[in-house]
Write a protein that binds this DNA or RNA. Structure first.
Lengths: 124, 124
DNA sequence: CGGGCGTTCTGCTGAGAGCAGCGGCCGACC
DNA sequence: GGTCGGCCGCTGCTCTCAGCAGAACGCCCG
């Protein structure tokens, strides 16, 4: 990504979202779990800064392999760990949590979209 | 509290916030940790429903003592546990996360207020 | 082919999640 | 004053998993 440092993070994550599948839902088809949303947004924020796992992990004081597991929603980091990572990414907890909230709204709209269209089709 | 069931939760937590001190900051005076914000908002949402620890804990399938520890920011619940509690409170993850984000913004404004005034006083 | 990056695996240790039981504090109520 | 409901705090327990280290693999690119 860009070499220039990213602008100060907005209150809401206004950077373009990554393409790709949304994080996995729970087995009952309900909304995703916190650790999946957390990990996805952390990875997104890291990519916005144009950094590798190793770079961010070093500044956060954790292993790159563990950061990879967190971003993939495999492990559940402690609040202290979350604070270390957001510090390394130069964002605040409110930035992160807002990004998760916005992403959840987007994911929910995406899941509901085809369902609404399918319902209209059935009504026709 | 009111016997009538609470209205459908809004996308943002628009119910009046509890009076009282904001959650504890980290030792460096930075913003609070995720588990403190999480716990505070879960307790707020439970109070909005007019419920006791025992009532909500039973529906979530956890012990009331453990729910108390979560709400006080003493314990770090797993994502599955968070999902169980939000389910018991009849809110979604996006409701919870949005509530945390809004609360963080409020807390940050509160912390900055007196600091700005203090700075002006010093300049005088 | 080699390097960079990310993922996956095995194995480990120690912290802590989640619980049960109990006693205590406080405010409301009688 | 006593009782009750709600909550807190403590001890102690078991078992899961956080977080790590090291190694290996796959993919992509020059």
């Amino acid at each position: 990504m860009a070499d220039t440092p990213p602008p100060p993070p907005p209150a809401r994550d206004e950077t373009p979202q990554d393409a790709g599948t949304p994080p996995p839902l729970t087995r009952t088809g309900r909304e995703p779990l916190w650790r999946h949303m957390l990990g996805e947004r952390l990875r997104h924020l890291r990519h916005v800064r144009g950094e590798t796992l190793d770079q961010t992990a070093r500044r956060a004081g954790i292993s790159p392999q563990y950061l990879s597991e967190i971003e993939r929603g495999v492990k559940e980091p402690s609040s202290e760990m979350i604070a270390a990572i957001t510090g390394a990414l130069d964002v605040t907890l409110v930035d992160l949590v807002s990004a998760v909230a916005d992403r959840l709204v987007t994911v929910r709209a995406t899941l509901r979209g085809p369902t609404c269209r399918a319902a209209f089709a059935l009504a026709a």
